[in-house]
Amino acid sequence: MSAITSLCVYCGSSSGRLPVYTEAALQLAASLVSRNIRLVYGGASIGLMGSVADEVLRLGGTVVGVIPKALAHKEVIHANLTELHITQSMHERKLKMAQLADAFIALPGGIGTLEELFEIWTWAQLGMHSKPCGLLNVAGYYDGLNTFLEHVMAEQFVKAQHHALLMVEEHADVLLERFMRYQPPAVRRWVDEAEI
């Protein structure tokens, strides 16, 4: 695995019910800055998105936001980012984030977070990238999803090698260490980026 210099974080535009979710976002931010890894994220100033970005900036790190024009005009855009990309659509946003990042982590979040995670994981399955993908399972937030994904694999809708493309850990430092040692498996390339 080549060095990770840029990491995309998918997470909620809400802070969620428990303070531990924000604490985990702050810890992930500190872990990124300590490793000199820039943050790529959805560009908003609210929820866990705002928390992780604010903390990276406070600690002297680099933050790249990518936000679609429609959301930028609804005043959720973060005003103090190192770099900002405004895209024409949500699809363009996700592609840009994928192009800018060497790895991907999902913190707790809602439907949008899950959709982004599943898309980037699918792209790995299709051989479109060989970058590490992970879930930060804060306070058991993703326990139910993990159980379901084990069921999906047991029912033979997902192969074990593709299931293993998604790493799950409770702590940011542990997940990042796994990313640093990640050796992508040989995965057949089904489609090219231009075909999506």
Rank of each mutant, 00 (worst) to 15 (best):
residue 53 A to F: 09
residue 181 R to A: 10
residue 86 I to Y: 02
residue 28 L to N: 01
residue 49 M to E: 09
residue 4 I to V: 12
residue 181 R to E: 13
residue 154 A to Y: 06
residue 79 A to S: 15
residue 62 T to V: 14
residue 115 E to T: 03
residue 15 S to F: 07
residue 65 G to C: 11
residue 136 L to N: 02
residue 55 E to A: 07
residue 113 T to Y: 09
residue 100 L to N: 01
residue 190 W to K: 06
residue 34 S to M: 09
residue 12 G to V: 02
residue 9 V to G: 04
residue 146 N to A: 06
residue 75 E to C: 11
residue 158 V to C: 13
residue 100 L to W: 00
residue 16 G to I: 02
residue 24 A to P: 02
residue 83 E to Q: 11
residue 134 G to D: 00
residue 147 T to L: 09
residue 5 T to Q: 14
residue 165 L to Q: 00
residue 135 L to N: 05
residue 136 L to T: 04
residue 190 W to M: 11
residue 72 A to N: 06
residue 64 V to P: 03
residue 79 A to F: 06
residue 151 H to A: 09
residue 85 H to T: 07
residue 128 M to P: 01
residue 116 E to P: 10
residue 139 A to V: 06
residue 141 Y to P: 11
residue 51 S to E: 09
residue 47 G to R: 03
residue 54 D to T: 12
residue 87 T to H: 07
residue 194 A to K: 10
residue 61 G to V: 02
residue 4 I to N: 03
residue 85 H to F: 14
residue 134 G to M: 03
residue 42 G to W: 06
residue 13 S to A: 15
residue 188 R to D: 04
residue 110 G to P: 09
residue 24 A to V: 04
residue 181 R to M: 15
residue 139 A to D: 15
residue 119 E to A: 14
residue 161 Q to T: 14
residue 120 I to N: 08
residue 14 S to C: 07
residue 155 E to N: 14
residue 40 V to D: 05
residue 59 L to Q: 14
residue 20 V to I: 15
residue 140 G to A: 13
residue 18 L to P: 00
residue 100 L to F: 02
residue 146 N to R: 13
residue 102 D to R: 00
residue 129 H to D: 00
residue 160 A to R: 14
residue 155 E to K: 13
residue 53 A to G: 14
residue 70 A to Y: 13
